[in-house]
C-alpha cells in the first residue's frame, strides 16, 4: 500500500476557551483520489481543513501529509504540499495584481526569475485565466476570482488541493465552468461542500463529518442514495434531484 497523501489518525481539537470541535477524526486520502467532505454547518469541516496545513494543531492525534508529520520543523513543506483554497476569494487574493498573487506562494518557497514566471503562467493557464494576469483582483468577476484563487494554490504544485465550499456564490455557468476545470486538473482533491450534486459530479468518494467525527465514508453515490443517512446528518439533496444508480 502506498503512503497516503493525507493521513489523519484520531484528530481531536477544542477551541481555546470554547467548544470541542473534533472528537477523533480518522481520514486517509490516497494520491489521485477525489474526496468530498460533507457535513452540516458546525460539523467541524473547516476546523479539520485548518489542521491539514498546521494552521490549527490537534489536541490529540496525528496529521501526516505524504508521510511528513505536521510539525513546526516541516511547516513550509507541509504548506507547499497542501494547497487550501478558502471559501471567499477576497480572503485569498490580497496582492495588487493577479500575477503577484499567484507568485506569492512560490516566491515564499524561494522561487525567483524565469522559474517563478513559468510557475505563474502554468497555474493561470490551468484554470484558463492567463489573460487576467495583470488585472487587479477586485476588478474581476466572482467566478474569475474563484479560478484565480485556485491558481494561487496550484502555483505551489501541491500534493493535494483542498477546496472549501468551491461553489458558494457562483452562478450556474461559473459553477459548470469550475467543474470542467476541476475535472481536468490532474491533482488529488479534497472538496468541502454542501453542494451534494457537485460532490456526485466530481468526487467518487465522500466522507460525512458530523458532530466532530467521521459518520460515513464510502462511494459518493452510495452515500447520497441513503436517504436515512443524509437525514440523520442534516444533509439533503436539492428538490427534484435523483441520484444516479451506483452500479
Amino acid at each position: 500500500m502506498t503512503t497516503p497523501v493525507l493521513d489523519l489518525r484520531g484528530v481531536a481539537y477544542r477551541y481555546p476557551g470554547s467548544h470541542q470541535a473534533l472528537y477523533g477524526v480518522d481520514l486517509h486520502v490516497h494520491a489521485g483520489e477525489r474526496v468530498a467532505l460533507l457535513g452540516p454547518n458546525g460539523a467541524g469541516k473547516t476546523t479539520l481543513v485548518l489542521h491539514l496545513n498546521g494552521i490549527l494543531r490537534a489536541g490529540a492525534g496525528t496529521v501526516e501529509v505524504s508521510g511528513l508529520p505536521v510539525t513546526d520543523a516541516h511547516l513550509l513543506e507541509i504548506r507547499r504540499r497542501v494547497g487550501i483554497v478558502f471559501q471567499d476569494p477576497d480572503d485569498q487574493l490580497f496582492m495588487p495584481t493577479v500575477r503577484d498573487d499567484v507568485a506569492f506562494g512560490p516566491a515564499n518557497l524561494g522561487l525567483r526569475g524565469p522559474e517563478l514566471d513559468a510557475r505563474v503562467t502554468e497555474a493561470l493557464t490551468a484554470v484558463d485565466v492567463l489573460g487576467l494576469a495583470d488585472r487587479a483582483p477586485h476588478h474581476l468577476s466572482f467566478g474569475q476570482r474563484r479560478r484565480v484563487a485556485i491558481a494561487t494554490v496550484l502555483a505551489m504544485e501541491p500534493d493535494i488541493l483542498v477546496l472549501d465550499e468551491p461553489t458558494s456564490n457562483l452562478d450556474p455557468a461559473s459553477r459548470r465552468e469550475l467543474a470542467d476545470i476541476l475535472a481536468a486538473l490532474p491533482v488529488t482533491l479534497l472538496m468541502v461542500t454542501h453542494d451534494l450534486p457537485y460532490a456526485a459530479q466530481l468526487c467518487e468518494r465522500s466522507v460525512i463529518l458530523s458532530d466532530g467525527v467521521v459518520a460515513a465514508d464510502g462511494r459518493t453515490l452510495d452515500l447520497l442514495g441513503d436517504a436515512d443517512l443524509l437525514r440523520r446528518h442534516r444533509l439533503e439533496l436539492p428538490w427534484g434531484f435523483a441520484v444516479p444508480r451506483a452500479d
Binding site: 494552521i55 504548506r79 497542501v82 478558502f86 507568485a103
Partner: peptide
Amino acid sequence: RVHVSMVSRGWTGTFPTF
C-alpha cells in the same frame, strides 16, 4: 482570514519582492 490564507501559502513575515 487573510492572514490565515497568507500563512497557508508559506508566508513567514516577509513580503516577497517581485
